[in-house]
Design a protein around this nucleic acid. Sequence first.
DNA 1: TCGCTATATCGGGTTTTAGCGATATAGTGT
DNA 2: ACACTATATCGCTAAAACCCGATATAGCGA
Lengths: 101, 101
Amino acid sequence: MSAAELDEMIKALSHPVRREILHWLKQPELLFADQEHPLSFGVCAGMIARQAGLSQSTVSAHLTTLQRAGFLSSKKLGQWNFFMRNETVIQQFIARLNEQL
Amino acid sequence: MSAAELDEMIKALSHPVRREILHWLKQPELLFADQEHPLSFGVCAGMIARQAGLSQSTVSAHLTTLQRAGFLSSKKLGQWNFFMRNETVIQQFIARLNEQL
DNA sequence: TCGCTATATCGGGTTTTAGCGATATAGTGT
DNA sequence: ACACTATATCGCTAAAACCCGATATAGCGA
């Protein structure tokens, strides 16, 4: 993980809504049990937008930010885009922060 | 550590210069060995400014941000203000991030 | 094809952040 | 008191981030 990548990751976490999204996706069954598609695919963007209470475009941008930083991966199925946490990256980030800080 | 405090801490880390400052202060003897005052007091603002290569006022603001977030503490001696890392807070922050994220 | 849904991207207005020089505050030494 | 040093704060401009509605893209179903 380069310094530039670390920078992008920390910036991605510097917005409370993005941290919330990451947190929600830790246990999707708590908040998104009503999703029509299996949660094993991830959680689709619309449900996350509804939970956040922000506009669709705003939340889409937040998801893009989290994905670009590497914290989320996405899987496109039909017209839906499902997002899930990238646990490996998250752990690497914490470890890197631990030694870098 | 409240959610608002965590937010302030992450925002404080979201600027690369502020992360560098924290890093420099981890082993002050590597970069600030020429300080006239004992490094046990911390590192004075002027030396940090010189190292950062930014204006005095800008670096002073960065130091204030880091201090408000709790990452740095300062000790005023005469006309100098010495800054040092608050290791306890830094470790608490990492731990909190680990469980929150 | 047409209409509907889900999502991404664009354009623009508002807010926040970063940087600087100038100034204020305060300590030091003469 | 005066000059000098160290640092914080102010006032400002520039850049970045945030949010929204509107539009574009693409899949789905009739």
